[in-house]
């Protein structure tokens, strides 16, 4: 990607948020409502509260839980997906269970996880892990199953062992779909990170938002929401940039084939 195109990419990403923030700024400028303070107040409070006091005490632990749960889910999801791809009968047997757990909203399992793991970090990491696991697992399996027959013939021609076939052919072929699953998982993970802190925690950004609301520190509540939105967006942008880099071959070859 050349420099001007990169700028264009970032611009196409940012114009709507900028527009909405401007609207929020103007609309709330003269607000006297306790529940909707002016954006300028929220921003100055955000600077005061989150650089760096609450960032260290609340945001960092939250992101730490998210990171551990997410990375574990990606590793286990791809690993388990590969196993189910290899052993078709196991996949058939696992199918109803996987889909049952996939459609079950992860927050519904929070009470169970609280009983099983207590209220500490383990519980939060576990619930993030569980919510992130399914999109990665199902996309891995789907992507692997969709591997081009002719590429599998090539694998046969080269007499690849199962592990070689996985590493050299199937995993790269499925990687665009695995990435799509990882992106969905990231969104799920952020949701569960916040929800778990709201239900059972004494730290974290979710806890901060709920506590602020309950103690009528409404401006503080808004700063928490704002920080969460910014962090979520940054994580997503970072993910997309990383994906574009790693899967450059996929995006460019698709473009090329469409142009032909």
């Amino acid at each position: 990607m050349t420099i001007p195109r990169r700028i264009l990419f970032v611009a196409s990403y940012l114009w709507l948020p900028v527009l909405l923030i401007t609207w929020w700024w103007i609309a709330s400028a003269s607000s006297t409502s306790t529940f909707f303070p002016p954006l300028s107040t929220i921003l100055s409070e955000t600077g005061r509260l989150w650089i760096f006091d609450h960032a260290v005490n609340d945001l960092v632990p939250s992101l730490f839980n998210l990171a551990i749960g997410y990375v574990l889910a990606v590793v286990v999801g791809i690993g388990l997906g590969s196993v189910l791809w290899r052993f078709r009968r196991a996949a058939v047997a696992a199918h109803p269970v996987v889909y049952f757990l996939y459609v079950l909203p992860a927050p519904a399992l929070l009470p169970v996880f609280m009983l099983a793991f207590g209220l500490g970090m383990t519980m939060k990491v576990a619930i993030v892990f569980l919510s992130c696991l399914w999109p990665v697992l199902l996309n891995t399996l789907d992507g692997m199953r969709a591997t081009d027959d002719i590429k599998l013939d090539v694998a046969k021609t080269l007499n690849l062992s199962v592990l070689q076939k996985l590493r050299i052919v199937v995993l790269p072929a499925a990687s665009p779909q695995i990435a799509a699953g990882m992106r969905t998982a990231l969104a799920f993970g952020i949701v569960l990170m916040v929800v778990s802190e709201m239900v059972a925690s004494t730290e974290g950004i979710g806890y901060f938002i709920l506590l602020s609301q309950q103690t009528f520190a409404v401006t503080n509540m808004w700063t928490g929401i704002l920080v969460l939105a910014i962090v979520g967006s940054l994580l997503n942008i970072l993910f997309v940039l990383g994906e574009r880099r790693v899967l450059k071959w996929h995006y460019q070859s698709t473009l090329m084939n469409n142009a032909r």
Binding site: I150, V154, T157, P172, S175, S253
Partner: peptide, 15 residues
């Protein structure tokens, strides 16, 4: 033994 398939766009690895 080696095989060359008709559909090169599918037999080659784009990555």
């Amino acid at each position: 033994v080696s095989i060359v398939f008709q559909d090169y766009s599918r037999s080659l690895f784009p990555w």
